[in-house]
């Protein structure tokens, strides 16, 4: 069941790229009630899309991902819960090197690198059944 108040909102989304429109609306609603600026909203949408699409692409086993947004003073926390037997810790993913030429760059890794740049903290936990990711963005 979706839950919400002005500082906390949570909803499950079908694992499909088509869900992105609903996810952006979900973020938009929270952003208005929490008076986030355009730059903050852009970063949050970007980070959510990257984590969500990774879950769609690499863990297609279950059908839904639960996403939550939680404002705690100056901290905005974005949570993801995904049923996943094999852990994939995004914090361990090797960073891309932005100074490399096109010829030397390998595909992939752009999204996770940018999550780390656009958000202030990335936490990953796995309990044997679920992967839980919490992204933190400091907001004024």
């Amino acid at each position: 069941m979706p839950s919400s108040d002005s500082n906390h909102i949570e909803k499950s989304f079908a694992k499909d790229f088509l869900s992105l429109k609903a996810i952006f609306e979900f973020v938009g609603k929270f952003s208005v009630s929490n008076k986030l600026n355009d730059s903050q909203v852009f970063s949050i949408k970007f980070a959510i899309e990257e984590v969500f699409t990774n879950m769609v692409k690499y863990n297609p086993g279950n059908t839904h991902v639960t996403i939550s947004l939680n404002r705690e003073g100056k901290k905005l926390k974005v949570g993801f819960v995904d049923a996943e037997e094999k852990p994939f810790d995004i914090t361990k993913k090797e960073d891309v090197n932005p100074s490399l030429s096109i010829e030397k760059r390998r595909p992939g890794g752009l999204g996770i690198f940018l999550i780390k740049k656009l958000m202030d903290d990335v936490e990953y936990a796995h309990d044997g059944k679920y992967s839980r990711i919490i992204l933190t963005k400091l907001v004024e």
């Binding site: 852009f42 990257e50 699409t53 010829e103 760059r105 752009l110 999204g111 940018l114």
Partner: peptide, 16 residues
């Protein structure tokens, strides 16, 4: 209004 890494990747895929 918005671009994600999927969009950025398209530019990488065709430039060469």
């Amino acid at each position: 209004s918005y671009i994600s890494s999927a969009g950025l990747g398209v530019f990488m895929a065709y430039i060469e």
